[in-house]
Design a protein around this nucleic acid. Sequence first.
DNA 1: GTCTATACTAGGATAGAC
DNA 2: GTCTATCCTAGTATAGAC
Lengths: 213, 213
Amino acid sequence: MVTTVTAPKPSAPPKKASFREKMHQAREDAIVSAVNRLLAERGFEGMTVDEVAAEVGVAKASLYKHFPSKEHLAAAAMVRILQRTLEHMATLPPQLPAHEKLKSVVRWAMQVHLAGEMPLLPTENSTLRSTLMAHGAYLDALVEVSDGLGTWIGEAQASGALNPTTPPIVVLYTLFARACDPVLGFMKAAGQHTTDEIVEWVLATCFNGLNTR
Amino acid sequence: MVTTVTAPKPSAPPKKASFREKMHQAREDAIVSAVNRLLAERGFEGMTVDEVAAEVGVAKASLYKHFPSKEHLAAAAMVRILQRTLEHMATLPPQLPAHEKLKSVVRWAMQVHLAGEMPLLPTENSTLRSTLMAHGAYLDALVEVSDGLGTWIGEAQASGALNPTTPPIVVLYTLFARACDPVLGFMKAAGQHTTDEIVEWVLATCFNGLNTR
DNA sequence: GTCTATACTAGGATAGAC
DNA sequence: GTCTATCCTAGTATAGAC
């Protein structure tokens, strides 16, 4: 075949390639957004791929051209929320005290939660767990968020703002857990308060505790 | 059929009736225990009726002689944990300060959680939710627990032990949520601390907050 | 890479004998 | 009221045309 004369594969025009790529990304973004919302509403087990397809307005088979399984769909949504978290963290002014940065992140996460966009934490022993634990992008993003928060936790404890006797890992896990706090949903369902009020009360409970100070 | 001579249905000997009844109750108790454990491990959607049957060591069809649906299996487990909560509440000495009673209940619930016996809260929009909302025994038990805790919350806020500016409903929901706090599972999975340490730290975080006091 | 149509399986529920 | 065997829907995933 060495002697065969074939035209060299023409490199596609950059403009067009970029356009196609953009469409592709936009479509995947729409998919991940839908997954994210359904994950927040129903959890991984409760969410069905049919629902995702319906919400995106695309055939189910098409989803599987983008992502190889339901677990990978969910993983993409988890990566996305972690990246959004990193983006929020990056917007915080460096001179802000560490404990204020932490508060801001939790406040932001609670607002995301109340907006119905915070995926529920996967239960242990879930098929999702093992996929996530083998998912490089997810682990990377998780480590990056944890490291960032961990640094601030150290600073806030050193400054005396956060209780230094609490093990930092307890603080870190508590912050993650508060982002998914069911209290937010309960209060919203009770329907007696604005989302801002709910966020401030739950946030205050988190940092100040239930006891009188 | 009025003229038909039939022996009057002999009332079963109390001893034997009681025995049969006891066997029945013991079987149902075993079922509910298994459901409770699997609900804690996998959540409602993640739990399968096959697993329940396997764990009890009984045929799946037999389960449906006791409970009409998967939802009702779960509801029975929810009722049971609420009743266990009421039992624990009843053991507390009346002269104990209200805020200590509340702490004791949360501590107990966390221990139950770490023992793998705390059913996960049902996600909103679940088929389980609607069954629970139509389940008299569940609602009764829920109201009874809520009323009991609500009374203590009022007392603890009046005494100044709990922050009186926090809406009581926030306190109540927070206590329920802490019983299912994923932080407990995270810390346990991290495997660096005893369950007693975990409980005390999470409990302290709940009542004292993350901030330095 | 999108669609329609379908394969395949898991899982909730039931039939019917004992 | 327990069992075995089965029904049947829902839901993940894929085939194959365009």
